[in-house]
Design a protein around this nucleic acid. Structure first.
Length: 590
RNA sequence: GGGAUCGUAGCUCAGUUUGGUUAGAGCGCCUGCCUGUCACGCAGGAGGUCGCGAGUUCGAGUCUCGUCGGUCCCGCCA
């Protein structure tokens, strides 16, 4: 039973209309302003802030107790809601027209002085924030983030429920699979020397659920990938995982757009206009130098290979004849960028892995170009024209292997846009990127690997290419991109066990290995697998963008550092020898 | 695996370039005063393993090497 007065209102509730009422509030002491004969306390809970007044003439005992209050003490205060004097209103607080005149107070717990102020304005280093995450999470910004995340999850569940999807939980202990990211492994106590893996995604289970006849599946689910981390990548992260039977690309796309539109309408009051723009992978690469282009600004690239193919600049002509690409980035109104700045861009391009950077300043009367002596006046003009440049523009040109050269130019495009402040805040540029290649060559492993995953279906018209030129086959895959971030990705799956076996063999997974690793799936597909496809949203990333954050750590309650550590509870940690023994695991010195 | 950058008071930082007296500031904290503040004010005070360990040097916060940790990026992330 409680021994203190329970709250009648929250710290965000009280307004002028409550004046005269007797109420009880509970919360944390945000600040204290002790005037000697008069003490003000700002009391905080997750709903807001209310000013509390202590006066010696109301009750002397409570006033004396109030002197001992410090930051983050937890109290229950009971008193009368009073209107503030006319010239003492605080317009920056929703509760700023009233205050609580305290008659009675219980100090529920005292608190040590916190290592940092519970305050949105304080810029605290991330290691300190993570060590004291319970304090960091008290900050209004973090509370807003997690509450928005909660609302988003509710809307997603409601949306898919209304559309006939059912949420099915899939195992967290599953079979380790080849392909893809490094697995987290869990040793089995019952089966010495055998391991479970944590799911990189519930991919195989959701496809099996399609075979099982649950034709519309959704799950908000944790996934685990033991790979290096980034601002938008954590070891464990959350997907909105979706799969539909008897669906093609358009069905998935439309269903996904509906969910995104509802999320943005309900949470941000932003009315998006579907259908979202679509672009093929090749277009995205050649126009923006990225498979997840940021469309909030222009600075489009241009492939200028044909203009320099027969030029006197051997680097370019040889690249084109060797199957590579020459691409240009036109930067409007920057012809007078200093030589020093251009040199810095060149250094940056070299650091990214390209041999050099050719530049051209387009002036009204002439073009100043770093390789004009090789190109000649006409060649220079041809290059500038192919780049689509007008007087006043600066043109940057790189050459090299198709994907590498375009990616590097795409990176420069982003960095230049940032520097020139071309990226508009508050705009939401969604697009679908489609027609990804099905396979790529892994230089490291000297074999084909799936660009998406091994269950992704090739385009029907490209199936024959699997026999002849597998790298040219396109996948029935699609990524949803928002402001340069991949927020969802999916595909139509292979549902024919013969084609699936063919894919495994292309990936260098022999019949025996395929049976060992994916036999259950191949078996399942023999018993009547419906055509199906799906998508998975990066939930953390989506919430990060919706909250205006630049790191998913700010929308995850208890994230890990880039080194994979949880600074609050200090995991990972060593374990008892006995635990290892039971698991048949021995630590070897590295 | 690689690159960049950071680590100095509880917090945020200056000081490191060019080694040299007792390592500073703001905020916070503590004590006293203060009846209308809301970044309260005023007066006084406490508080340091310069991340850690070696090395160079007469002398290291400062230079060198190693190491631990944070952040960002490349590779990696079906």
């Amino acid at each position: 039973m409680t021994t203190y007065p329970k709250r009648t209102h929250t710290c965000g509730d009280l307004r002028a209309s409550h004046v005269g009422q007797s109420v009880t509030l509970t919360g944390w002491v945000q600040t204290r302003r002790d005037h000697g004969g008069l003490i003000f306390i700002d009391l905080r809970d997750r709903y807001g802030l209310t000013q509390i007044v202590f006066r010696p003439q109301i009750t002397h005992q409570t006033f004396e107790a109030a002197k001992s209050l410090r930051s983050e003490f937890v109290v229950s205060v009971t008193g009368k809601v009073a209107a503030r004097p006319q010239d003492m209103l605080n317009a920056s607080l929703p509760t700023g027209s009233i205050e609580l005149e305290v008659q009675m107070m219980d100090i529920l717990t005292k608190a040590d002085t916190p290592p940092f102020a519970i305050d949105d304005d304080a810029a605290i280093n991330e290691d300190i924030r993570l060590k004291y995450r319970y304090l960091d999470l008290r900050r209004p910004k973090m509370q807003r983030n997690l509450m928005l995340r909660h609302r988003a999850a509710q809307i997603v569940r409601s949306y898919y429920d209304r559309n006939g999807f059912i949420e099915v939980e899939t195992p967290v202990l599953m079979k380790s699979t080849p392909e893809g990211a490094r697995d987290f492994l869990v040793p089995s106590r019952f089966q010495p020397g055998k391991f479970y893996a944590l799911p990189q995604s519930p991919q195989t289970y959701k496809q099996i659920l399609m075979v099982a006849g649950f034709d519309r599946y959704v799950q908000i689910v944790k996934c685990f990938r033991d790979e290096d981390q980034r601002a938008d990548r954590q070891l464990e992260f959350t997907q909105i995982d979706v799969e539909m039977s008897f669906a093609d690309e358009d069905d998935i796309v439309v269903m996904t757009e509906g969910c995104i539109v509802e999320l943005f309408h309900e949470i941000l009051a932003v009315d998006l206009k579907p259908p979202f723009r679509r672009m093929t992978y090749t277009e995205a690469m050649e126009q923006y130098g990225s498979d997840k282009p940021d469309l909030r600004f222009g600075l489009e690239l241009a492939v200028v290979s044909s203009a320099v193919r027969d030029s006197g600049f051997r680097v370019f002509s040889d690249t084109v004849k060797g199957g590579g690409v020459v691409a240009a980035l036109r930067i409007p109104e920057q012809a007078e960028m200093t030589r020093n700045q251009i040199d810095m861009l060149t250094d940056r391009a070299k650091a990214l892995g390209v041999g050099g950077l050719v530049w051209a300043r387009v002036r009204p009367d002439q073009v100043e170009c770093s390789i004009s002596k090789f190109l000649g006046p006409e060649g220079t003009q041809a290059l500038v024209k192919a780049a689509g440049a007008s007087p006043g523009d600066l043109v940057l040109v790189v050459s090299g292997q198709w994907q590498k050269a375009l990616t590097i130019l795409g990176t420069l495009r982003l960095e230049i846009a940032e520097r020139l402040k071309l990226i508009s805040d508050g705009s939401w540029e969604f697009l679908w990127v489609t027609d990804f290649p099905l396979l790529e060559m892994s230089e490291e492993e000297k074999r084909y690997v799936a660009v998406h995953h091994p269950f992704t279906a090739p385009k029907p018209e490209d199936v024959r290419l699997l026999e002849t030129e597998p790298l040219k086959a396109r996948a029935r895959a699609y990524d949803l991109v928002l402001n340069g971030n991949e927020v969802a990705g999916g595909s139509i799956r292979i549902f024919d066990s013969t084609l699936q076996s063919k894919m495994f063999s292309l990936l260098g997974i022999g019949a025996e290995e395929a049976r060992a690793k994916f036999g259950f799936m191949l078996d399942a597909f023999k018993y009547g697998a419906p055509p199906h496809g799906g998508i998975a949203y990066g939930f953390d990333r989506l919430i990060m963008l919706m909250t205006g954050c630049t790191s998913i750590r700010d929308v995850i309650a208890f994230p890990k550092t880039s080194g994979g550590l949880s600074l609050m509870d200090e995991s990972p940690s060593t374990v008892d020898e006995q635990q290892l023994k039971e698991l048949h695991v021995r630590i070897t010195p590295s």
